[in-house]
């Protein structure tokens, strides 16, 4: 049952991911990305990461992607025009194969031999466990990340103001 659900949601994620690249209209691409996020959230849930799954939905699908769609709608971006980059047409597939080969090689040789994932085995995904880990073991990285995000927000405001002037 778990394996079947995993297959279904993994397939949805992959199909949406391919659709994201293939589609020419920005809105279609953005919604495909939302589909990827939703499928990923379901996969996290299957693996026992309840909090991560909910955060994925609330933050990525519910806030960030809404902003993306909002901006695309606001700018009224039209359909993309395909350029005449013929070399990309011929070089793309071999390059992709080489890339996949490198990744397969890395996974096969470099990664430590891992045992099979068992669904339902991981039980430390609850908000309680994650909160405890964030504010004890990983306190410094957590606070540094929040400062980094604050700097990014301030930078965005500065850049946006310049453009208006």
């Amino acid at each position: 049952m778990d394996a079947l659900l995993f297959m279904i949601f993994a397939a949805i994620a992959v199909v949406c991911g391919i659709n994201l690249v293939v589609q020419t209209h920005p809105i279609s691409s953005a919604l495909s990305l939302v589909g990827v996020m939703g499928a990923l959230a379901a996969l996290y849930l299957l693996l026992g990461g309840e909090f991560i799954a909910a955060a994925q939905l609330v933050v990525y699908a519910g806030a960030i992607m809404v902003l993306f769609v909002f901006v695309i709608m606001l700018l009224n971006a039209g359909t993309e025009h395909k350029g005449h980059r013929t070399w990309a047409k011929y070089a793309g597939v071999p390059l992709l194969l080489v890339f996949l080969g490198i990744i397969a090689n890395l996974i096969a040789n470099r990664l430590p031999a891992s045992e099979n994932v068992v669904f339902g085995q991981f039980t430390k995904g609850s908000p309680l466990e994650i909160g405890r880990a964030l504010f004890t073991t990983y306190l410094l990285p957590f606070e540094v990340t929040s400062v980094l995000i604050l700097i990014a927000i301030l930078g965005a405001i500065v850049l946006a103001r310049k453009e208006i002037d």
């Binding site: 309840e50 909910a54 955060a55 908000p127």
Partner: peptide, 21 residues
């Protein structure tokens, strides 16, 4: 659900796509 409140926040946040689209 253990995360009932978050679930409701997440799902109802997706409802905006219907209106926006």
């Amino acid at each position: 659900l253990n995360i009932g409140v978050l679930f409701i926040l997440g799902i109802s946040g997706l409802g905006v796509y219907g209106v926006a689209l």
